[in-house]
């Protein structure tokens, strides 16, 4: 029986689900780098995934699905950070564990990590996407819905800040 005459095309929902199941580690480590605990990072990715699916019908062009979902995840992170911090026991334990672990790791520069964490949220995201996720500037601009030169100058500014910090 022919359901769709001729052209068969993935629905937005199918596409979004596929991308989520393919890329969830990426969203998770991004979220984790901000909230530094498993439960919150997990919540962020789950909420983002639900929102992406529920609004998948609004996605106009499927070729932008990946950047679109990434943007949803970023917004989910920002929204989470805006909430009043709940310094639960679990939260404190986990973040302390994170610091302790890094202290043991001699290759990790804690000062640089702190400097990176103290950057404005968006600037930290740009550095993360560029240097950790190896995303192209075009893609970052698309995700942030900014033009490339804005992204470039913000990246430049942030890198200068980090460099200064390292020189201290």
């Amino acid at each position: 029986m022919q359901l769709i005459s001729g052209k068969k095309k993935k629905t937005n929902e199918q596409l979004v689900e596929e991308i989520l199941l393919e890329q969830y580690e990426q969203y998770y480590r991004l979220a984790y780098s901000y909230v530094k605990n498993e439960a919150d990072a997990g919540d962020i990715v789950q909420n983002g995934a639900y929102k992406a699916l529920r609004s998948s019908h609004t996605l106009r062009q499927q070729e932008y699905a990946k950047t679109w979902i990434y943007r949803i995840m970023l917004n989910e992170i920002y929204a989470h950070l805006r909430q009043p911090k709940n310094e639960s026991y679990e939260f404190l334990q986990e973040s302390r564990g994170y610091e302790a672990e890094s202290a043991e790791d001699e290759y990790v520069n804690i000062d640089l990590q702190r400097a990176l964490d103290s950057l404005p949220q968006q600037d930290k995201a740009i550095i993360t996407m560029k240097y950790f996720e190896d995303k192209k500037l075009e893609e970052i601009a698309e995700i942030l819905d900014e033009n490339i030169s804005t992204v470039k100058s913000r990246l430049y500014r942030s890198m200068k800040k980090l460099q200064l910090h390292m020189a201290e």
Binding site: E25, R29, S33, V108, T128, F132
Partner: peptide, 10 residues
């Protein structure tokens, strides 16, 4: 930092 960033797994 990147190495540690990439080490995080869900």
């Amino acid at each position: 930092l990147k190495e540690r960033y990439m080490d995080v797994k869900m």
